[in-house]
Design a binder for these strands. Structure first.
Length: 272
DNA sequence: CCGTAGACCTGTGTGC
DNA sequence: TGCACACAGGTCTACG
């Protein structure tokens, strides 16, 4: 569920409570959660270490600890990292006690979320993380890069933008929103995108992500921030979740199609 | 290499 | 009300 703006919000919420704290004890209650190393060794690695940094790369939460240990978390569809466990919260899968009495709670309805605890040199055992493309809000993400990655690709432009090796952090909501603002039909072959369109797309991707970060993310159903609160960006969505409703620009009925197995909403008049 | 369907898991909403 | 089926902010793998 969480895309870049949601992960960014969780990181911002957690950071002040985690920096300088020592992990006192780790409890994992879901055999699917820890991807590397084995669960017992994962817990042993974290316990007793001080947290130095809390950052984000794509949709990964990246926590740096003493002795160059990196604790990495991917929330996938329904993962939550919470500073307070509400009474009604279900699906608790793990918890992390810190030396000041704080507990970080990990909840995950669908159990797709993953965690890793790795030292330098173990990168090859981490799956997709090492293949991430540029950060969309950084300077190395530009139309030249996008155009290069789109060349010779017949897959839909939406599929290209969902590929984390092309750009890290976009998901189903923000890709649909960025394509709407750019006036580009999501079904078009990636290779048909012009230089001018690539330039527009880079701008609208940044615009959508920045706006969503300011709004603390989008909550459709499951997403919660580190504080347990919902996002506000759902009020600003132009197309996602609005199939059949009128386009805010032209009034046309928004269309829905499946692209790469993902439901996709677009305006048949504004997006060509 | 490229592109798409199916799998992973658990729940909610919809239509008959 | 019950049941079956589609669908859900993600991403791997297997296969043609």
């Amino acid at each position: 569920m969480p895309e870049l703006p949601e992960v960014q919000t969780v990181v911002a919420d957690l950071e002040p409570h985690l920096i300088g704290r020592r992990v006192e004890s780790v409890t994992v209650d879901d055999p699917l959660l820890v991807r590397f190393p084995q669960q017992a060794e994962f817990c042993r690695r974290l316990e007793g270490k001080e947290i130095l940094t809390v950052t984000r790369r794509g949709k990964y939460i990246v926590i740096g600890l003493e002795q160059q240990l990196t604790w990495m978390i991917h929330l996938r569809m329904t993962g939550r990292l919470l500073l307070n466990l509400a009474k009604e919260e279900k699906y608790l899968r793990a918890w992390f006690r810190l030396d000041d009495g704080t507990t970080v709670w990990y909840c995950d309805l669908r159990r797709f979320g993953d965690m890793w605890a790795w030292y330098p040199g173990e990168e090859t055992q981490l799956g997709g993380f090492i293949d991430l493309g540029p950060e969309p809000l950084a300077d190395d993400f530009c139309s030249t890069w996008l155009l290069g990655r789109a060349a010779n690709r017949r897959a839909p432009v939406k599929t290209l933008l969902l590929d984390q090796r092309v750009v890290a952090g976009l998901g189903n909501i923000y890709v649909d929103e960025a394509l709407f603002l750019a006036g580009i039909d999501p079904r078009r072959p990636a290779s048909s995108i012009s230089a001018a369109e690539a330039e527009t797309l880079c701008l609208t991707i940044r615009e959508v992500l920045s706006g969503a970060i300011s709004a603390r993310g989008t909550t459709f159903r499951d997403y919660r921030s580190g504080r347990g609160t919902s996002g506000e960006y759902q009020q600003k969505l132009n197309v996602y979740g609005r199939s059949g409703e009128p386009c805010r620009e032209c009034g046309a009925r928004l269309a829905s199609v499946r692209i790469g197995g993902r439901s996709s909403v677009y305006c048949p008049r504004c997006q060509t």
